[in-house]
Design a protein around this nucleic acid. Structure first.
Length: 276
DNA sequence: TTGAGTGTTGTCGA
DNA sequence: ATCGACAACACTCA
């Protein structure tokens, strides 16, 4: 389900729901989801308190007394907190039982999500091994460095942005949105995009992701935050899912195509192909 | 009914 | 180095 704005809203919801709660037991019904080993995960986290829930890119970081675990929701992961009775659901995979009787349940229809146990001191290395780029903020994400990287690369711009190395947090929805805002053809190689468009792209990445965070993210298919609430940013999408409708900027019909295997929405007039 | 498509990421082979 | 294909899995829609 989630890109950065959705993950950030899940994080905020979880902070309210489980911060300060002490785990009494964990049940991993789908052990393969826990890449570092389900048994050790269950054993290690028992009797530890969740002190904070943080985020890096699209990854959630639960910080406990002695350990941390990193949770990635992939396509459809969700967290729900139950005060007592837990409804039967075949997509409920990991159960965190708390001392106060409540239970945090991880739900994932497609079972793509992952959890990994580690020490806080290992986090930096973990994200650097995965080549997770800067957070999309003006403090962390430098426009000059971004331009330099793109200027010397023949990679196709859209999949390059999706690989998280230049900036963390974009997924298939927001990448189409920011390319539309910066008037860039999604399948063009990075090195032929004019500097002015790259600068616009840089600002759009920060602006769109931040605005979506504030609006609770986008509920496109199944996304809801940890409180079961839908986001509102889907009402502000300009191209994602808008194929066949007029471009809000120029009225040309939005098209959908495939770019490196992903459905890609764009305005053929505002985002003309520059490559021959 | 079957196949294509879905908000992600990692691996493998050319 | 890079890119496409494919994998993990379940469900929806044409």
């Amino acid at each position: 389900m989630p890109e950065l704005p959705e993950v950030e809203n899940v994080r905020r919801g979880l902070t309210n729901l489980v911060k300060g709660k002490k785990i009494s037991s964990i049940e991993a019904r789908y052990p393969r989801m826990i890449l570092t080993g389900a048994e050790e995960f269950e054993k290690a986290l028992k009797n530890q308190t969740i002190n904070s829930v943080e985020r890096r890119g699209k990854y959630l970081i639960f910080k406990l007394d002695e350990d941390v675990f990193v949770s990635h929701l992939r396509m459809e992961g969700k967290y729900n907190l139950y005060q007592d009775e837990i409804p039967e659901n075949k997509h409920y995979h990991i159960f965190f039982n708390f001392e106060d009787g409540s239970t945090l349940v991880y739900q994932d229809v497609r079972k793509f999500g992952t959890m990994e146990l580690m020490k806080e001191s290992e986090l930096e290395d973990y994200f650097s091994r995965k080549k997770i780029g800067p957070e999309p903020t003006f403090e962390d994400f430098d426009s000059k460095g971004f331009y330099k990287s793109l200027h010397k690369s023949k990679k196709i711009i859209k999949p390059y942005l999706l690989d998280q190395s230049l900036v963390a947090g974009l997924g298939n929805i927001y990448v189409d949105e920011v390319l539309w805002r910066a008037k860039i053809y999604p399948a063009d190689p990075a090195n032929i995009i004019p500097k002015a468009n790259i600068e616009k792209l840089h600002d759009a990445i920060i602006g769109v992701l931040q605005q979506s965070v504030e609006l609770g993210g986008s509920s496109i298919r199944t996304y809801k935050n940890a409180l079961g609430e839908e986001g509102k940013f889907q009402n502000h999408l300009k191209v994602y899912g808008k194929q066949g409708t007029p471009c809000p900027r120029c009225g040309t019909t939005i098209e959908k195509m495939k770019v490196s295997g992903r459905g890609t929405h764009f305005c053929p007039n505002c985002q003309p192909k520059r490559a021959k």
